[in-house]
Design a protein around this nucleic acid. Structure first.
Lengths: 203, 203
DNA sequence: TTCTTTTTTGAACAATGTTCATTAAATATC
DNA sequence: GATATTTAATGAACATTGTTCAAAAAAGAA
């Protein structure tokens, strides 16, 4: 009863993801587009649209893998329970991760499509998991009943970090500062942490 | 000895800038492209390339005007010499400005071209002028001889703000937080300021 | 009036995302 | 086994950008 697909949709998505990662590794983000992915998969462009609703979905998949890898990396950092020490330890691993995976990291900060669609549901989960990890680091700074403030503090810090990488990905960070991105990130974390320690972030 | 240009290059640039601003006001950023600008100017696309090296230069012009207007707005805020009060006053004006000019503001955070070229020289000046203004606000927090730290502190805060608007411009802020962008900005400023007051940002 | 020079034009190109009528292959039916 | 049915896969074609450049148009010079 009808032609059988060569691969299931999930298999196809995994193959497309691998193809995208190869392309990014070899040619960087500019080399990533529907046609190159299709060519490397050995299928036609139309097949990409049988698997995904559009290229943005594939990009989300790549970014999902990046977020997973980041979470895995940060999970391995041993924690002491001292927020300052731990946040710095996590920050070091974070910066190493960014340096290791510069190309796919920058894909997190690219907007590729004219029609802005929101990311798939599972994407939020991956972000939330990272926030949960960071909440574990900063929790000692907030008393019991401070979970809301804690959650907010983590997210604000994430947003600040986003500023660094967003500027850096477009080569615009140097308009603002002569410092390297990791130095900027460290500085921000230090000031932010001092602010939290001083009692800010609790309305 | 040759055909006379209808307008000088500078005149043409001003006309193009006005056309671009009209388009942004009427159709938003998605409506802004070489053809719409040319059409509204009543010239052909080729003429755009006689005036500019590419569309990115026109975008820079619009952004330059936005930065000028922001500087003008912030300049009018009366200052007391108390960093916390003054920074909050400036922040209020800043947030009002962003709300007033949401569309052209977001153009600051768009990357339009594949080939990344750096902004023209005058662009740096406009940014620097804003930093100078903010340095005036925060200077009391830094002793004499603290100019380097002061300059850095201002730039770091700018980068953090960039994170807010960069996420917001792509409708991604809601992935991270349920709070509105201006609330996020205020929170960040408060924590950052507390950190500076606590003595962070001085190596 | 004719020629020269310079501006202005807009058709054409390139790169990208996307669609959809057509083709091809696998299974069902006889 | 031959035919019909159904569904995956194809890729030419479209749409939308930014960009180029040979040709046309216009203004002054000869």
């Amino acid at each position: 009863m009808g032609r059988r697909p060569k691969h299931s949709k999930d298999e196809f998505q995994r193959i497309a993801l691998a193809a995208a990662q190869d392309i990014i590794a070899e040619h960087g983000l500019p080399g990533l587009n529907v046609r190159t992915v299709a060519a490397r998969m050995g299928v036609s462009v139309g097949t990409i649209y049988n698997i995904f609703t559009g290229i943005e979905e594939l990009v989300a998949l790549v970014n999902g893998e990046t977020l997973d890898a980041l979470h895995a990396a940060l999970s391995e950092v041993p924690l002491s329970g001292r927020p300052e020490d731990d946040l710095h330890a996590v920050l070091d691993r974070y910066l190493a991760f960014v340096a290791e995976r510069e190309r796919s990291w920058n894909l997190l900060f690219e907007e590729r499509l004219p029609g802005a669609k929101e990311p798939p549901d599972w994407y939020y989960g991956k972000i939330t998991r990272l926030f949960t990890l960071l909440e574990g680091v900063l929790r000692p700074l907030f008393g019991p009943g401070g979970e809301t403030d804690l959650a907010r503090a983590v997210r604000l810090l994430w947003i600040c970090m986003h500023g660094v990488w967003s500027l850096n990905a477009r080569d615009h960070l140097s308009i603002v500062t002569g410092d390297a991105p990791d130095a900027v990130a460290r500085n921000i974390v230090d000031i932010y942490l001092a602010g939290l320690r001083a009692g800010a972030g609790r309305p």
